[in-house]
Design a protein around this nucleic acid. Structure first.
Lengths: 159, 159
DNA sequence: CTTGACCTTAGATTTAACTCTAAGGTTTAT
DNA sequence: ATAAACCTTAGAGTTAAATCTAAGGTCAAG
């Protein structure tokens, strides 16, 4: 059982944000005190964490509402409806994962191609890494050496 | 070589959006015609696609700017700087992937638990799926049958 | 028994990211 | 050679998602 300020602090949001989510139907406290204070349960907290996670990966509040409506309307829906909706959201999530893996590969490639030393990063760029396909990595070959293996271990392939 | 309208159409954004990105330093056309029209190269288009992908997975324009600044400033930076920044962004991307996999698992679990038939979805909910750990899945056991295996194949485990 | 940290509401303001408007110049098709 | 469909700028308006303000009620500590 949390009051609004406690839940807000725990989840690192403002109390305003919680009232905003309530007004927009995303999260309502399970009860109120006699004097009208909001009382949130652990279940409410779980729901909030779900909302914040969804937001962090780029879902809009409208999309999050839709995801959560699966919970709210469950007894009025048929399994077929729920499954259809879930599977569509699942496809959406999987598409996002694929997009992010694209960034991951690009950034990893750039990180690998870059020796990490004090040289100019003339040939280190995300877009160069994007243009390069799969494993044929441009790698700067500077004409000097510096102390250690840590910097140069990833610099061996050349386009 | 594209004019603003052509690039906008190709990437399904408004021309306003491209002018907005230019004003905010995310994407400038490589040149202009004598009469002042913007001329975008294939490289510019690639950069735009990068921006749109980054946006789609929840990066703000400020974060995207930062990602792209690796490109802009490359000759003024040392490899060590670039690598540090890239690795930090990489960690960010990997965290997002982890978050999304959390959703993927939850949704997949829900999809699996839900028989997909015409029954009430009483026990189908995202939050129930979130609460359930790993493989001990609640699954409604309706007292009737319907046509085929397609609906019931995933309904065999019970908590 | 009052001070200060909480809570309430309604409504105004802010921020990011567009999106539109107005007033005019350019290009292409008929 | 002129209408339609583009382009230019500066600046105003919109939308989502908060965030702040004002005016006041609640409650535990000293």
């Amino acid at each position: 059982m949390y009051r609004i300020g406690e839940l807000a602090k725990q989840c690192e949001v403002k109390t305003d944000t919680l009232r905003f989510y309530e007004k927009h139907g995303l999260l309502s406290p399970s009860s109120r005190t006699d004097s009208g204070y909001r009382i949130y349960t652990e279940n409410d907290a779980e729901r909030l964490r779900f909302i914040l996670r969804a937001k962090a990966v780029g879902f809009t509040l409208a999309e999050i509402s839709e995801l959560l409506s699966i919970e709210l309307d469950k007894s009025n829906w048929a399994c077929a409806d729920v499954k259809g909706m879930v599977d569509s959201k699942l496809a959406h999530v999987e598409a996002k994962i694929a997009e992010l893996k694209f960034f991951q590969v690009s950034l990893q490639r750039l990180s690998n191609a870059c020796c990490g030393g004090p040289e100019s990063a003339e040939h280190c760029s995300i877009l160069e890494a994007l243009e390069t396909n799969t494993d044929n990595i441009k790698c700067e070959n500077h004409d000097h050496h510096h102390d250690d293996s840590q910097y140069t271990k990833n610099c061996q392939r050349k386009g």
